[in-house]
């Protein structure tokens, strides 16, 4: 059973080719990483999985259904997205951010409140419930965006560079969150440009460069195949 299947996905922005015939499949329950430098096409691909960007050509299947406009709301209801940019509501408090977001999923107020409370405890932000989000540090904002993506208890979680720009302690905390979610059976897709992160968290890694997937394998196989650490493999693969 696959959670996501991409078949020859290609995306042009005007004349710029952002994705070049990308094919992959992600099994349910897997933690799948897309590793690549800035501009490799990772975010474009993530946006395609939740229907924000439509491919110029190719097909994408998410949670067993071919993605198209008619079933987009139904599919998106089962996805959690943690975007790269901070798009929290700056005028609302920490708790309000979660509650307003839960309404988009049509979650009942009482359920949403309980869920928000548990998620805030889960990441240690409960004491900050009524604080304005402007008051939060970068790491705390990241954590809030992270749990906002969990408010609908998604089957598929998309993490777009979840730790970029964080200090080592905050990064460690986010890693722990991802580790604990892996045991819950959710399918997790993450993008990163840190080899260490991909190696530590992912069951499978797809290396991307210039809109293409160069290879897909487990971190162990990659190490064996190339007889070294992933970083070395990465630099060899992406040489100009």
């Amino acid at each position: 059973m696959y959670a996501v299947v991409g078949k020859s996905l290609t995306k042009y922005y005007k004349n710029l080719k952002a994705l070049d015939s990308v094919t992959f499949s992600i099994s349910a329950g897997e933690c799948f990483g897309f590793l690549g430098a800035n501009g490799a096409g990772k975010t474009t691909l993530m946006s395609m999985i939740y229907g924000f960007i439509m491919p110029t050509s190719g097909e994408i299947e998410v949670l067993g259904k071919k993605l198209q406009k008619s079933n987009l709301p139904e599919i998106k209801a089962k996805i959690g997205v943690v975007p790269q940019d901070n798009n929290l509501d700056p005028d609302l408090s920490v708790l309000e951010n979660l509650l307003v977001y839960s309404r988009y999923f049509d979650i009942r107020k009482k359920d949403a409140f309980n869920r928000a409370k548990n998620l805030l405890k889960f990441v240690g932000l409960y004491e900050w419930s009524n604080a304005n989000v402007r008051k939060l540090s970068g790491g705390m904002k990241r954590k809030l965006i992270f749990i906002r993506g969990l408010i609908n208890d998604p089957d598929l979680l998309i993490l777009d560079e979840p730790t970029t720009g964080l200090d080592p302690r905050s990064r460690k905390q986010i890693w722990n969150l991802i580790e604990s979610l892996k045991h819950s059976g959710k399918t997790i897709i993450l993008t990163t440009h840190y080899m260490e992160e991909a190696e530590k968290l992912c069951d499978k890694i797809a290396m991307m460069n210039k809109g293409k997937i160069l290879l897909i394998d487990t971190p162990e196989n990659l190490s064996i195949k190339f007889g070294g650490n992933l970083e070395k493999v990465y630099f060899e693969m992406t040489e100009d």
């Binding site: 139904e74 998106k76 209801a77 997205v81 940019d85 798009n87 509501d89 609908n152």
Partner: peptide, 11 residues
């Protein structure tokens, strides 16, 4: 504020 981006990641 990228509010549209946030909303479009929901149904």
């Amino acid at each position: 504020q990228k509010t549209f981006d946030a909303i479009l990641a929901t149904p």
